[in-house]
Simulated scan of single mutants.
Amino acid sequence: MTDDPAPTADFDDETAGTERETESTESNERPEQVTKSAESSESTDSTDSTGSTDSTDSTDSLDQDVADEVPEDVRKYERFKKMDGAQYDRVNSFLRERTYITAREWAIARLCADFRTETGVEMTKIGKNLPRLIPFMTDTYTPQAVNQARSSFEGKVKQSGATFLYGAMCGFFTAEELDEMMYEVTEVAKFLLEVEGVDLSVEDELEAEDRISRVMREVRKESAQLRSEEVECPECGHVHEP
Rank of each mutant, 00 (worst) to 15 (best):
T99A: 05
S93V: 00
A6Y: 04
E19W: 01
T47M: 05
S40A: 11
V70Q: 10
V74E: 11
E26A: 13
T47C: 01
D65L: 15
L95A: 12
L111C: 13
K81H: 07
P7S: 08
F11I: 11
V34Q: 12
Q64N: 14
A6R: 03
L95H: 11
A6F: 06
D4F: 13
T50N: 11
T2F: 05
I101F: 12
D3A: 14
E26L: 12
T99L: 10
G85N: 01
A86K: 01
T44G: 03
V34D: 09
Y88Q: 06
F94R: 04
E21R: 02
S93Y: 04
R116V: 12
E19R: 01
E29N: 05
M123P: 00
T18E: 02
N28Q: 10
P71M: 09
S46I: 02
I108L: 15
F80L: 05
P31F: 00
E32Q: 03
E118L: 15
Y100A: 15
S27T: 08
T2E: 11
R116D: 14
R104P: 01
R90F: 02
L95Q: 10
V34I: 09
L95K: 10
S46M: 04
D60M: 09
A16V: 00
A109C: 14
S24N: 09
E69S: 15
D13M: 08
T18P: 01
R79Y: 14
F94A: 09
D12W: 07
E39Q: 04
E42P: 00
R20V: 00
D4R: 13
S37K: 09
S93M: 05
S58Y: 05
D73E: 15
D45P: 00
T56S: 12
D4T: 13
D114W: 00
P7Q: 12
R110S: 13
E39D: 04
A6V: 06
S49D: 07
K36A: 07
I108G: 07
V121E: 12
V121T: 15
S24W: 08
A113Y: 14
E97T: 07
I108Q: 08
D65V: 14
A103V: 04
T117D: 12
E32H: 01
E105H: 09
A67L: 13
E23R: 06
Q64R: 14
Y88C: 01
T50E: 08
R30N: 05
D12H: 10
F11G: 02
S46C: 01
Q64F: 11
T35C: 09
R116H: 12
I101A: 05
S58T: 10
E26M: 08
A67H: 12
S52N: 06
R79L: 14
E26T: 12
F80G: 01
N28S: 13
R110G: 08
P5A: 04
